[in-house]
Amino acid sequence: ALREFVDRFGVPVFTTLNGKGVLSEVGTDLPRVVGSKGDTPANEYIGGCEVVLYAGSKMGDKSTNQYAWPSPGQFLVRIDHDPEIEDADPEHGCLLREDVADGLKLLSDALGEWSYAGPRPSAGTAGDWSKTGTASLVATVNAELSDRDVCVGEASVASGWFGALLRLAPPQRLITPRGTGSLGYAIPASVGAAVARPDATVWTLVGDGGLTMSVGELETIARLGLDVKITVLDNGRLNLIDQHAIHRHGAAAVSRDFHRIDWPALCASIGLPVMACDDPDRDAPEIASFFSRRGPAVLVLDTSVDEVSPDMAIAIRKVH
């Protein structure tokens, strides 16, 4: 229903993090993620719109860029059948208390022959995150994805990287804990995804902080031989928390005294194939070859504490 609506009226469309992949993101001028786990150009475009249509989103803090919209001058059209949502002020919005598909059909009937003729997002515009390192790794994942693959992003910066740079086409899926849920989510979720879609490869992006909270599930993945490809962003820190401490509160980093874990040795001791890398741009062919074999594999990516993820770039920009 959403695809038909967008094709009929030519409306620029964006998704939230959890809505990512509902429409194909492969190609140019296609859906991008908005909000705290999206990218700055998408957020700026939404901020300049006169009318914003939200279909099925609960419009929490992450999907509205910390409630940056609807702004006072925007008209909000919202489709949702949640009985707890309050009716909109008719001067500032309209609530269609319907299932999303039914609501889009009603809206299509009302719009008739209308078509969108306003400005469109700038094609190819990128945010101000670090363009090497993890960004290169996600580009490799994009190139290796096949029809029914599932991607799993840990809370924190992993969800930010996948939200802004991962390119999905249905029925590919992204699973995350809304981007900033509890650490330790990604590895157990990867086990579930691999069991649910045994014909698919599961691509998992997890920080070293999140992995310390779910390291036992690596044994499950090894023992069952699940086709889970794990990339560990290893900087020996809880870096998003450190960056918030520095940029939002003017304080010192809070995780500088953490012991550095030897993840390649730990994964090898469990029986997992493991590769260490400090330059995914240079090693992209080797990484693709490493991940091409069926079954589990772990890439330990040595990342800089100065690397800026897409969501970190948004947070820093808000402060400064």
Rank of each mutant, 00 (worst) to 15 (best):
residue 303 T to M: 13
residue 68 A to M: 12
residue 167 R to Q: 15
residue 60 G to L: 08
residue 92 H to W: 12
residue 70 P to L: 14
residue 121 P to F: 14
residue 173 R to S: 13
residue 141 V to F: 09
residue 58 K to G: 05
residue 213 M to W: 01
residue 196 A to R: 01
residue 89 D to I: 14
residue 317 R to N: 06
residue 264 P to I: 12
residue 309 S to Q: 13
residue 24 S to P: 01
residue 266 L to E: 01
residue 306 D to E: 15
residue 152 V to G: 02
residue 55 A to V: 15
residue 284 A to M: 05
residue 299 L to N: 04
residue 103 G to I: 10
residue 256 R to F: 03
residue 123 A to H: 08
residue 296 P to W: 03
residue 266 L to P: 01
residue 316 I to E: 03
residue 255 S to K: 08
residue 214 S to P: 00
residue 289 S to G: 04
residue 204 T to H: 04
residue 69 W to V: 15
residue 29 D to I: 04
residue 218 L to R: 02
residue 117 A to M: 12
residue 165 L to R: 11
residue 253 A to K: 08
residue 72 P to V: 11
residue 195 V to A: 03
residue 301 L to I: 03
residue 188 P to Q: 07
residue 302 D to N: 02
residue 227 D to H: 08
residue 211 L to H: 04
residue 246 I to S: 00
residue 205 L to E: 04
residue 118 G to S: 06
residue 183 L to D: 04
residue 24 S to L: 10
residue 51 V to N: 11
residue 84 E to W: 11
residue 96 L to Q: 08
residue 209 G to L: 15
residue 223 R to H: 08
residue 159 S to N: 04
residue 243 Q to L: 14
residue 140 T to E: 02
residue 202 V to Q: 03
residue 223 R to S: 08
residue 33 V to P: 01
residue 300 V to W: 00
residue 138 V to H: 04
residue 271 G to R: 14
residue 26 V to P: 00
residue 74 Q to W: 10
residue 226 L to E: 04
residue 174 L to R: 10
residue 114 W to N: 02
residue 1 A to I: 03
residue 37 K to S: 04
residue 200 A to V: 06
residue 53 L to H: 15
residue 268 A to R: 05
residue 72 P to K: 01
residue 271 G to I: 12
residue 203 W to V: 15
residue 54 Y to N: 06
residue 257 D to P: 11
residue 98 E to M: 14
residue 105 K to I: 15
residue 200 A to L: 06
residue 316 I to P: 00
residue 307 E to N: 02
residue 248 R to A: 14
residue 37 K to P: 00
residue 282 R to T: 14
residue 78 R to S: 06
residue 104 L to M: 14
residue 210 G to Y: 04
residue 15 T to K: 03
residue 104 L to T: 10
residue 39 D to G: 09
residue 100 V to W: 09
residue 228 V to G: 00
residue 147 D to L: 05
residue 17 L to F: 15
residue 55 A to R: 10
residue 193 A to W: 00
residue 211 L to V: 02
residue 109 D to I: 08
residue 169 A to N: 07
residue 181 G to P: 04
residue 143 A to D: 13
residue 137 L to H: 08
residue 36 S to L: 15
residue 11 V to D: 03
residue 195 V to W: 13
residue 283 D to L: 14
residue 275 M to K: 05
residue 236 G to M: 11
